[in-house]
């Protein structure tokens, strides 16, 4: 594989990590968030700042990055998650714009020039580049999928499914709506923070516009395309949406049009996503797609 393909695959695996996080929030707990890129950005900026200004290594910074992103998720989720459906969607869009503006207008975050000079990741005495960086991202993706799977097997996961289906009934069965929505939100945003850190050290330069609303929509598109609430759906969605522009390079000017067409076709013909309940792929491979529990 040439270096270009490896870079594309690395981006895709990062996108998949972040999409898995969004899937915990949207797919498992049923809370529509259209501001997920904000937490992707918070992860990227915290890792960039901790490694450039505080002098930590990537590995020293990573636990803090995940903690910071999760904590901000907790604080922002507390008021937002009390809202239902469309109000929550609008609020999360607002969060995205506010976070993006903070990065853009506050000099501490580099302003419009962004943050540069982010160190690369060292492991076993060498700097990770190319294929090795890809393997690192793949390993983190595996960890994220594992945690997602573990979550669906826990009582907390079951509580989230119940909330997603019928909040009033779930709450009459002892499920505190706010506690378990927040739990899913914190896990999801922490995963986005991890993705952000990997992104920052891959690019070694970040700016606010990388984490705008468009990015949130593209993450949502990955989740919807692959199958909301399925285990592997977000990964498949990120893979397809990441590869398409490369395969249809001649159509580069019509890329967004193509994406929109795919989404409309999905909603019309496979509303549960490629790996969702009743999809043609599940029909092909039996029930092994890891559908909604």
């Amino acid at each position: 594989m040439n270096e270009y393909s490896i870079t594309i695959l690395t981006f895709i695996s990062i996108q998949a990590i972040v999409a898995c996080g969004l899937n915990v929030i949207v797919g498992y707990a049923g809370q529509v968030s259209l501001g997920h890129a904000a937490f992707f950005g918070i992860g990227a900026y915290s890792s960039a700042l901790l490694t450039t200004k505080a002098g930590l290594t990537f590995w020293g910074a990573l636990p803090l990055v995940i903690l910071i992103t999760g904590a901000i998720g907790l604080v922002l989720g507390m008021p937002s998650l009390r809202l239902r459906e469309d109000f929550l969607a609008v609020t999360t869009i607002g969060i995205n714009f506010i976070v993006e503006s903070i990065f853009l207008y506050i000099p501490f975050f580099g302003g419009a020039l962004g943050l540069g000079g982010i160190p690369s990741i060292a492991a076993f005495g060498t700097r990770l580049r190319g294929a090795n960086y890809f393997y690192l991202c793949l390993a983190f993706l595996a960890a994220v999928v594992f945690i997602s799977r573990r979550f669906t097997k826990s009582w907390a996961g079951l509580a989230c499914f119940a909330l997603r289906e019928e909040e009033t009934a779930a709450s009459s069965m002892g499920v505190s709506p706010i506690r378990f929505k927040l739990m899913a939100f914190v896990i999801g945003t922490a995963m986005a923070g991890l993705g952000g850190a990997l992104y920052a050290h891959l690019m070694r330069f970040i700016s606010a516009t990388d984490f705008g609303f468009t990015m949130s929509v593209s993450m949502m598109a990955s989740v919807v395309l692959g199958g909301v609430g399925t285990l592997w759906g977000p990964v498949l969605g990120a893979l397809i949406l990441g590869l398409l522009p490369e395969i249809f390079r001649p159509l580069v000017d019509y890329r967004m049009l193509l994406n929109a067409a795919i989404l409309l076709m999905m909603i019309r013909f496979q509303p549960a996503g490629l790996l969702g309940e009743g999809s043609f792929l599940r029909g092909l491979f039996g029930r092994r797609g890891g559908g909604r529990p």
Binding site: W155, L158, A159, M173, G174, V175, R179, M183
Partner: peptide, 14 residues
């Protein structure tokens, strides 16, 4: 879901 009643009381237990 209902059988989980005594698990939903704390994050760790859940």
């Amino acid at each position: 879901v209902a059988l989980g009643l005594d698990r939903y009381g704390g994050v760790g237990r859940s």
